[in-house]
Nucleic acid binder design. Structure first.
Length: 235
DNA sequence: ACCCAGGGTCATA
DNA sequence: TATGACCATGGG
């Protein structure tokens, strides 16, 4: 089985034309879709393995229930919080995660205090909160704290795995290191926009069943050129 | 009636 | 280290 050069790390020179193509096709995304940094953080937890549309419902319900501040979420009876976020799915699990997060957030002094923390310090602290894993932490760092952390999500694994630039199943930290090296000399907005563009492309084109016929990246894509990268799923 | 969605934790080997 | 079970709603 040809592995399509799958162990090669992402390279800045290879990344640039991909960014330009995605930008040309999907346009500026303006992520993260939220009004405040705190809302970004809540949304990052609510969107775990869940469509964003369901998350917007949950956030609207949090606002109507006056559960849109860290204090209110922390102090709410858990069943009441869970009911408010019901549309996001996993509502019992996520209610516990939101409260764990808000408890931590208030303990450390919120954004005013966290602004002065180094990126690795915030990241380590976030990962210490039960229910915050690497992707959620990097969402929060990139879009709420404006730090240059690259988010590895299912869309990123799928797209770049198919492109043949990474092994899609590689450990999170391996992929993050590859992308962060490739983006090292790029400014924050490029990091934010690239992740958003990857999601847009993953929804519109590089879906589970890919629409290669309509894909602008096809010429530079291993799957688009008909290579087998080990996705057995195709029926 | 499926499959999928901007994951994470915990138990098991 | 690496799988698998579990969590649960709403759209295609």
């Amino acid at each position: 089985m040809p592995r399509a050069n799958a162990s090669a790390p992402v390279d800045g020179a290879e990344l640039q034309p991909i960014i330009e193509t995605l930008w040309a096709v999907h346009g500026p995304q303006g992520w993260w879709p939220a009004d405040t940094p705190f809302e970004v953080m809540i949304g990052a937890i609510l969107t775990q393995n869940t469509s964003w549309q369901n998350v917007t419902r949950a956030i609207a319900r949090l606002k109507s229930a006056a559960l849109d501040t860290p204090e209110a979420i922390r102090d709410s009876p858990r069943p009441r919080l869970a009911e408010a976020i019901r549309p996001s799915g996993y509502f019992n699990v996520k209610a516990e995660r939101l409260q764990a997060f808000c408890t931590w957030y208030l303990e450390v002094g919120g954004e005013p205090a966290l602004r002065d923390w180094s990126t690795p310090a915030i990241r380590a602290a976030l990962l210490g909160v039960k229910g915050v894993g690497p992707e959620t932490a990097d969402d929060i760092l990139l879009y709420a704290f404006h730090r240059r952390c690259f988010v590895i999500d299912a869309y990123t694994r799928r797209l770049f795995g198919r492109l043949g630039l990474v092994t899609g199943t590689a450990p999170y930290e391996t992929l993050r290191a590859h992308f962060e090296t490739a983006l090292a000399d790029r400014p924050l907005p490029v990091w934010q926009e690239l992740h958003a563009l990857i999601v847009a492309h993953g929804k519109a084109t590089c879906r589970v069943r890919p629409a290669c016929g309509a894909c602008a990246l096809r010429p530079q894509c291993a799957v688009g050129r008909g290579m087998d990268i080990g996705e057995t799923a195709g029926a």
